[in-house]
Simulated assay, not measured.
Amino acid sequence: MKKIKKYLLFWLLFLVILPCFVRAEEMEEPGTLYARSAVLMDADSGRILFDKNGEEKLANASTTKILTCILALEKGEPEQEVVFSEEAVKQPEVHLGAAEGENFHLGDLLYSLMLESHNDTAVAVAEAISGSTAAFAKAMNEKAKEIGCRETHFVSPNGLDWEDAEGAHETTAADLARILRYCIQESPKREEFLKITRTGEKTFFNLAGNRSYSCVNHNAFLSMMDGALTGKTGFTGKAGYCYVGALKDGERTFVIALLACGWPNNKTYKWSDARALFSYGLSAYQYDTLTFPENFGEVAVEEGILPGQGIDETAEVPLLLSGEKSLQLLLSGKDEVKLQVTLPRSLAAPVAAGEEEGKAVLLLNGEEIAVCPITAGKTVKKKDFSWCFLKIFEQYLEL
C-alpha cells in the first residue's frame, strides 16, 4: 500500500480480498429433504451453513427435552430429591410409570428423560427445579432468549403440544440448533449433558430401594455415522418426527435440527435427512486460517513533530492492526471473505501510540463477523512556538 499523502483530508475506505486456501470439495447443497424445516450449523461459531425454512415456527415434540435437561443440570444437583406428583404420573406415554409420591435422585431421572424420553419424568423434574411446570416454562423461555433464540415459545417441559395465553409450544429449526449448540459447547454442564445423552443403558432405583428402572438410549443415529456426538428424537401427531443432533470430526463440530420430518410409516426419514446434512457439512466445509495485514502504511500528522524532524518535514506515523493477526474460519469453496478497511487520510497532532485511528471489518459473504481496531504506531507531539523557534535558530546557526 502506498503512503497516504499528507494533503489528503478525508477518510479512505477500501476492501482487501483475503486469500483463502479451502481444501473442501465443491459440493452442491443437499437437494430434496423430507423435513419441512432443517438447518445445518457450525457449532463453534453458531453460523448456519444450510437452511431450509429454518425460521419457520413449528411444534418440536421431545427435542424440547434437551433444554429441560440442561436447565435441570444447571439449576439442580444430582442428589436432589424428585417426587412424582399427581400431575406427573398422569402424563401420557412414553412414561417411566412411577407411582404418585415415589421419589428419586435427579441425576438418575435425567437418564429417564433423555434416553427413554419419559414424559412423566419431564414434569417431575420441572416441578422439582421450579415448583411448577409453568414456572419451569418461564425459565426455559428465559434461557432460550439468553442463548439467542428469537422465535421460541415453550409451554411444556416434555414437548407435548400444550398451549398457554402466549401461544402454542413451538420453536424453529434454527433456534433448536442454537439450543443444542449451547448444551454441548457453552453450558457449564456440557460434559454432564454429553455423558447422559451418550450413555447406552442405565439402571437405577427409587430412593426407597424397592423398585428398579432400566433405560435404553433410543438415539439410533449414535451408531449410524462416525463422529455422531449426541442428539434427541421427538414425535407428536402435530410435530411429526423431529431430530436434533451433533457430529464431531476433528476440529469440526456440526449441529443439525429437523422439524416435521415425516409422520408414521416414515420413521426413518429423519435419519436419511440427518445423514445428508452431516455428509454435506463434512464434504463442503474445512477450517482455513486467514492472516491479516499487520501494517497499513503511514499517515501524515498535521502540525505533528517527531524526534529529529526538520521544520519543513512532515511527521508520519504507521497504522498498525491491533488484536489477533489471524483467524480460523470454517469455509466452503463458495464462501467469500473480505477485509473492509477504514483509514484516515491525515491526522491532527497530538497523536498517542496505540490510539485507535481506523478499523478493519472482516466480512463473510457480505456479513460482518469481526472488527479489529487500527491504531497509531507512534506518539506524535504537536508543534508549538518553542519548537518552531528552536528550529529557526538551528537553521540560522547553520548559515
Rank of each mutant, 00 (worst) to 15 (best):
A139K: 14
E394Y: 08
N219Q: 05
N141A: 13
A88G: 09
I311P: 05
H105I: 04
L113W: 05
S85W: 14
K382S: 07
A276R: 07
K248S: 08
L207V: 07
K338T: 01
W387E: 00
A144W: 03
C149M: 06
F292Q: 09
L339H: 00
G354L: 02
Y111R: 07
G310E: 13
L247S: 07
V123K: 10
S117H: 10
K6S: 12
T172P: 01
G148S: 04
V299Q: 15
T203I: 13
V155F: 08
D44A: 09
L13N: 09
L113A: 05
T63L: 11
L390P: 07
E100F: 11
E398H: 10
Q185G: 01
P78H: 05
A174H: 06
R150Y: 04
W263F: 02
E356A: 15
G101I: 11
L49N: 03
M27A: 05
S212Y: 07
Y280V: 10
V39M: 06
E324D: 09
L115P: 04
A137G: 12
W271F: 04
N295T: 13
A360I: 05
L109E: 13
M1H: 12
A98C: 11
K383Y: 04
G310I: 03
G304W: 01
I305Q: 10
W263E: 02
E298H: 12
Q185H: 00
F292E: 03
V371C: 11
I256H: 03
G262R: 00
T172K: 01
E142Y: 04
I196D: 02
D288T: 01
G366P: 08
A370H: 00
A124T: 10
C149T: 06
V89I: 15
F254T: 01
H218G: 09
L12H: 15
E163L: 04
N206D: 15
I129M: 15
V39E: 04
C215N: 09
A220K: 08
H218Y: 09
A228V: 04
C69H: 07
D164T: 13
T314P: 03
K145N: 05
A122T: 09
A38E: 10
E355H: 00
E55M: 01
